[in-house]
Design a protein around this nucleic acid. Structure first.
Length: 185
DNA sequence: TACTCGATCGGA
DNA sequence: CCGATCGAGTAA
């Protein structure tokens, strides 16, 4: 059976790639040390019932319909600030939730650790701003990346709740010598 | 305007 | 397992 490529599946591939590409990058809060991103989740399109864009364009989701490269920060459960990076082209709502940094796991903990709240919503992820992303040359081997269902989205129904769009890796594994390679001196 | 419920976390 | 805590989305 041939695989049918639709506009939706094309966007989906791009969004998933953006999510994986964030692993190993560094999140930099102005005035703080860079922190390596170790866990993310992808949210893609209005059809993704776990994505906030499931309700279409609203005041809150408008940012998701803009061009990628901006922060989407919202309050969850009335307590926790969630940090997302908007990705992709205009008019296709998609974002990557930053769920974990090296030594800091949990989306609510990430924002608390960096002192991030909704005041950053809509800001560009630009250097010398409040918050941006740096590539420090860390390469995360595909075999170290674990994919699994997203957390806390059972309300979206089985089709979308079971999508393996949560990606993470163990930063300690980067420092270990990959198995199968000859030992160094 | 009333009501429901969440992309979570820490404590019992 | 449960409560905290508040704003977005929906219905009225």
């Amino acid at each position: 059976m041939p695989e049918i490529l639709t506009p939706e599946s094309w966007h989906e591939r791009a969004t998933v790639r953006y999510a994986k590409d964030l692993l190993g990058k560094f999140l930099v809060r102005a005035g703080q040390v860079p922190r390596m991103i170790t866990e993310v989740e992808a949210y893609d399109g209005e059809r993704d019932l776990a994505c906030h864009a499931r309700a279409g364009r609203t005041r809150r989701t408008e940012i998701l319909y803009g061009p990628g490269g901006k922060w989407y920060v919202y309050l969850c459960y009335g307590i926790h600030e969630m940090l997302n990076l908007v990705v992709g082209p205009p008019d296709w709502p998609a974002a990557i939730l930053i769920r974990g940094l090296e030594g800091c796991v949990g989306p609510g903990r990430v924002t608390k650790a960096l002192g991030i709240d909704r005041r950053l919503n809509g800001n560009p992820a630009a250097p010398l701003g409040e918050l941006w992303i740096e590539d420090h040359g860390v390469r995360v081997p595909r075999r170290l990346i674990t994919a699994g269902p997203r957390i806390g989205v059972d309300f979206a129904g089985p089709i979308w709740a079971e999508k393996p769009w949560r990606f993470r890796f163990d930063p300690a594994a980067l420092k270990r010598r990959p198995a199968g390679l000859p030992p160094g001196k």
